[in-house]
Amino acid sequence: MIPAAFDYVEAESVDAAIAALTEHGDEAKLMAGGHSLIPLMKFRLATPGVIVDIGRMEGLNSIDDRGDHIAIGALTRHMSVETSELLGAEAPLLKHVASQVGDPSVRHRGTIGGSLAHGDPASDLPAAILALGATLVAKGPGGEREIAATDFFTGFLETALADDEMLTEIRVPKMAGAGWSYQKFNRRAQDWAIVGVAAVSNGSTSLSLVNMGPTPMRASAAEAAINGGGSIDDAAAAAADGASPPDDLNGDAAYRTHLASVLVRRALTEAQG
């Protein structure tokens, strides 16, 4: 619970942060709210040589209506997402999912960009942006680029971000009255999901899974079943196809597979209801 020594740089702009990342390479780690990184450092599971603190940077913390989508600055705190009237009207799934992250102190410090860039398969927000088909904006020395949410999560705690890139914005398509559901199965209010399912249904249905493999993932087989004219039960039966759920103290893979099925059924019932 006592982190190893590290150097500390406070970046006052995105360009300054990118410059620091460029200078220090894979020794450096960006820290926004710190609620994923600091616990890992305290366990000495992460020992970055340089912390580039972007937590107090100006900007990147607004939620804006951009016509067909809502743009959310990467440093927007979960609490701002959870309480946004704009998101309540245009992307209520995301607003709700933000309210399910950790506990109030986590939600007042943690940021949407930090949570997504950490890429934890057990986190809530990745499932939401996968189901919503969001686009992520990253900036590096060469400028900005857009990354589709489905391309963003590449491995366990790994993302499509390069070492010298910073996530700056999340663009969420307006839900236009779509049905939605987020089913989070956990033991205590503040815990990660043992399994979670996000669903968005508006003509076609998208489904994503929490903690069912090394990365946040879409439930592609279940989506194919329901979008191909199958029943909710057909989709539920296919919930974990292609997933590789972990075995841990909260449940073994077989139990998680079962839970995914139950939760897909509940999510589709709610989203299509």
């Binding site: 616990p39 366990f43 033991r187 205590r188 209010a189 503040q190 815990d191 103290l249």
Partner: peptide, 28 residues
Amino acid sequence: LYEGASYDDAGNCRNPSLMDYLVPSAME
């Protein structure tokens, strides 16, 4: 319902932190 120190066969505690050792709160 919640708590129990779990050990593997080599005697390692599998849940020494409050992330994995589930002390319940008022919410539960």
